[in-house]
Design a binder for these strands. Structure first.
Length: 499
RNA sequence: GACCCGUUGGUCAAGCGGUUAAGACACAGCCCUUUCACGGCUGUAACAUGGGUUCAAAUCCCGUACGGGUCACCA
């Protein structure tokens, strides 16, 4: 018998940009689907009309693609299980809601939100779990009917609730967490499956869709563990077979130890923000995959194909993973060092333009100049935006010398070194890194100074900084005019200081 | 508060009854080097806790502590 085709889904609600946590859920579903040569479905869960953000689903899809995640069925791709937006599936849900109503497995509920809130408040005060208590307790069918008629007469609109069987145990073998079980009385009471506005609730729509779309495995966040028994109630009421569930741990903030909250601003949480800083998609993919999942070997850097080949949900961690910014930076740096230089140039140019350091429409010559800058700094950038800071000396007017710099050029040999170097440099036919290095060698010959005592004064005088890339390259990139001006300025400062 | 879940160095983690308890990030030192970085080497540092079970426990069981998740007409 042929093994059943694996079908998984990623089901975001379009309430904003792609969040790290959601990206991770999408990623693991993607890896699982590809590893098993299965199908990945993208379904948009937009049943809360009020919270839907315009362009939200497009933004999410765009960022998913950027990360290198693609899917086989979805609102943009179609497929035989569509439509793939829940807001377009209302008729489908209604059919099953009616079925449950007719079978006496669900009922109309007229209690208002205020009444329910008061009820929960009371329960909390009593120290018991807030839950819905059956509003028709002890009533006969006749009494229920007349209560509902009375409510309608008052102009109340009902919601539909599903009956939760008493004394039942809901359990499943979670792919990540193992055996899990909930007693039916801890689920929280008969829950709403259709809201007053006629839309289904999440816990109902998910079940209908997962079943109809023939989803075989559901990988989602840990925060859905307690939704699972509710969904199991729906599966049972409808007489359907549930898929396999796997609940992945949440990503937490290392400082607070709490689940990443979208409101937490101490940390960048949206894929787009990393994208803007010049993180590479392959690096993000690599980093996120290693968050809460571990491969077999000892490597840290894997490409997508290796991840797909290796992916095994059994190796998903049971305890939450903290988001380690430093590690992300390290991983991204690994990728940057090997990245295509045109890609880096493009990103860095963008960052430099946004920082106002390079004009909007640079001449080819300037682009070439930036290319060299990127080449020089690539090894040390964690993300391309850092170039705006790393390469400061190439863009800013020199500041006054720092104490440390003064200490370096205070030495007796400094002045002759700088003067000699200036003359040597001026003599050179061309202004290149090679020529600059030759000028330095000539300076060494003339003055007899070498090592740090030779290089430091020149570096400080020429680039007005103690740190930077190789001296030759730095001088070439800085340009003759600037370097000469720096040398003159430094010499003047030395004179002024009486050195 | 109730219900679920978790706990190996600062962080991510390997481990599946016998290990000198991997590896990576971070941190420190050394080497390379004109500087910073890169790279190389070395080091600091962990099984939450108390009881069992067992010849043997980070690994299995129970309790405790701590942490997290959820308790909506949000997903």
């Amino acid at each position: 018998m042929a093994k059943e085709k694996i079908r998984v889904r990623y089901a975001p609600s379009p309430t904003g940009h792609l969040h790290i946590g959601n990206a991770r859920t999408a990623l693991f579903n993607y890896l699982f689907a590809r590893h098993n040569k299965g199908t990945l479905v993208l379904r948009i869960e937009d049943t809360d009309l009020a919270r839907n953000v315009k362009g939200g689903s497009e933004s999410q899809m765009e960022n998913l693609h950027w990360l290198g995640i693609d899917w086989d069925e979805g609102p943009d791709k179609g497929g035989e299980y569509g439509p793939y937006r829940q807001s377009e599936r209302k008729a489908i849900y209604n059919k099953y809601i009616k079925q449950l109503l007719d079978a006496g497995k669900a009922y109309y509920s007229y209690e208002t939100e205020d009444e329910l809130e008061a009820q929960r408040e009371e329960q909390r005060a009593m120290g018991i779990a807030p839950h819905y208590t059956y509003e028709y307790e002890g009533m006969t069918a006749e009494e229920i009917k007349s209560s509902q008629v009375a409510a309608e007469a008052k102009g109340l609109k009902p919601v539909v609730r599903i009956y939760i069987p008493e004394m039942e145990n809901y359990e499943w073998d979670d792919i990540v967490k193992g055996q899990l079980s909930f007693e039916s009385d801890t689920i929280g009471g008969d829950f709403v499956i259709q809201k007053r506005d006629g839309m289904p609730t999440y816990n109902f729509a998910v079940v209908v869709d997962d079943h109809l779309m023939e989803i075989t495995h559901v990988f989602r966040g840990d925060d859905h563990v307690s939704n699972t028994p509710k969904q199991l109630v729906v599966y049972e009421a409808l007489g359907w077979q549930p898929p396999k569930f796997g609940h992945m741990t949440l990503i937490i903030n290392a400082d607070t130890g709490k689940k990443l909250s979208k409101r937490d601003e101490s940390l960048l949480q949206f894929i787009e923000q990393y994208r803007d800083l010049g993180y590479l998609p392959e690096a993000m993919f690599n980093f996120i995959t290693l968050l809460g999942w571990s491969p077999v070997g000892e490597k840290e850097i894997y490409n997508q194909r290796e991840f797909i080949k290796q992916f095994d949900p059994k190796r998903l961690s049971k305890s939450p993973a903290a988001f380690d910014q430093k590690k992300l930076e390290w991983i991204n740096n690994q990728y940057i060092k090997n990245a295509d230089r045109d890609v880096l140039l493009d990103l860095a140019l963008n960052n430099l333009q946004e920082a106002g350091l390079v004009e909007a429409n640079p001449e080819p010559k300037q682009i070439e100049w930036v290319r060299q800058l990127v080449n020089i700094y690539a090894v040390q950038m964690s993300y391309t935006k850092q170039i705006t800071d790393l390469a400061k000396i190439f863009f800013e007017r020199p500041a006054a010398l720092t104490d440390a710099e003064i200490a370096e050029i205070k030495k007796d040999e400094a002045r002759p070194v700088i003067t000699t170097f200036k003359d040597e440099l001026a003599k050179r036919p061309r202004f290149t890194a090679v020529q600059a290095m030759q000028a330095i060698q000539a300076t060494r010959q003339v003055t007899g100074v070498k090592g740090r005592k030779l290089f430091m004064p020149i570096r400080i005088a020429a680039t007005r900084s103690m740190v930077g890339p190789g001296l030759g390259e730095a001088i070439e990139l800085m340009g003759k005019e600037t370097v000469m001006a720096h040398l003159d300025q430094t010499l003047a400062e030395l004179t002024k200081a009486g050195l």
